[in-house]
Write a protein that binds this DNA or RNA. Structure first.
Lengths: 218, 218
DNA sequence: CACGGAACTCAACGAGCGTAGAGTTACTGA
DNA sequence: TCAGTAACTCTACGCTCGTTGAGTTCCGTG
């Protein structure tokens, strides 16, 4: 159909760099770090692969530019600032789905999550970001006791929901309306964050445990 | 150090096929489907890449052979058969960690999980297996009401724990003793499985929801 | 209007990939 | 003892990958 691409700079001032970045987000989100190819990204942006290299240098650098976290932690903090405890937890879960249901946000999150599965760089990025920029501030604003132990398990609940809803697509999670999930998740998160500490005396004797739970953090 | 490999059949009756399979599990678990290479698998098994092809044909077939589910669902059912409700939930969580902490089991699970992230084949395999062979039987044995809606969210909790503990390695989840996690998770799972239905009248008015939860499954 | 530099493509490199077929060795059963 | 067959390696094919350097076109400034 179309002949060979015209060479040289294009007329006008198209945001080609932005197009490449968008394509990169899309491909990384779809295929993960190793699965996505510079050639495919370039093709999706309607551009020569060499141009990608011209802008970003290496594939690594392109990934780092594409996989920036989609949500502003500050925005999150303001969402959590007011209301009763239940209202704030509800606001948090809504915020979570708000980001995930947004096309651009989902793609960036998928980028990181998919790539973190096999690429240690991405895993480290995710690990430190989640710990420093997300869990820390959340713990402060929500006034959680023993956040070091409680928040990761609450985070695990949400990560699992994201996995099953957006990646593995298990029904009925995949097509449930978000508000239904919010309603179901809020009590669980409240238990995680504010419930009675499961590591009391009563817990260790409630079930005939063969090995005792460790008294507290290592 | 060592010269070129001696050609032809090896003396004795070594289980080379098994070695290849073990190496495949290891590499798939480590690198995911696209990241793992037949050459790396062969090298880890101390074998020529062509031999892998000789035994298994294509990379697809090798993956299918390597990624069989590590736990016997029947074994799981028997674990869940007896005791009080709390005891059975506890037994389930212990079983979960038992499989994940075992080297071979973890590698097979990681194979499927890592590959499901980017490879639709693996995702479909995981989806149908989880639905048919795991959640179904568990729902029956545990006598959960409304299992269609409740179980996936409980599964999401466990999947998330696996993600953060074994893949992303978020502390303190990554190095907490399993019994501590069991103690913390059991109450949450009980809430998921047997707690009051969050989708009652009181839930929808507890928080000033802007959009109403859907009345039931589609 | 000239000219420097940014934007962009072309062609090609070296390496690694999955796969294939032919050749070599050892076990197995008649 | 002697095929026949299964186990195993060598060599190599066609392909795609990330990256590079040189060449072409256009914008912005004087």
């Amino acid at each position: 159909m179309s002949g060979p691409q015209r060479t040289g700079r294009r007329p006008g001032n198209p945001d080609t760099r932005g197009a490449v970045l968008a394509a990169a987000r899309h491909r990384f989100a779809q295929d993960g770090y190793e699965g996505a190819t510079i050639r495919a990204i370039a093709a999706e942006a309607g551009v020569d692969p060499a141009l990608v290299h011209h802008y970003f240098g290496t594939k690594q650098a392109l990934f780092r530019a594409a996989a920036a976290f989609p949500a502003d932690p500050g925005q999150l903090a303001s969402v959590l600032a007011e209301g009763t405890r239940t209202e704030r937890v509800t606001a948090f879960v809504r915020f979570f789905f708000h980001v995930w249901e947004d096309d651009a946000g989902r793609q960036q999150l998928l980028s990181v999550l998919r790539s973190a599965m096999t690429h240690e760089d991405a895993a480290a990025l995710l690990r430190t970001f989640v710990a420093r920029e997300l869990l820390g501030p959340i713990a402060e604003v929500l006034e959680v006791e023993d956040p070091h132990n409680r928040l990761p398990l609450a985070a695990a609940q949400m990560v699992g929901v994201a996995m099953l809803r957006y990646i593995v697509r298990v029904e009925p999670l995949a097509s449930a309306p978000t508000e239904e999930l919010v309603t179901r998740l809020v009590p669980v998160l409240e238990l995680h964050l504010f419930g009675p500490d499961a590591l009391g005396v009563e817990a260790s004797e409630a079930v005939g445990a063969t090995s005792r739970p460790s008294p507290s953090g290592a």
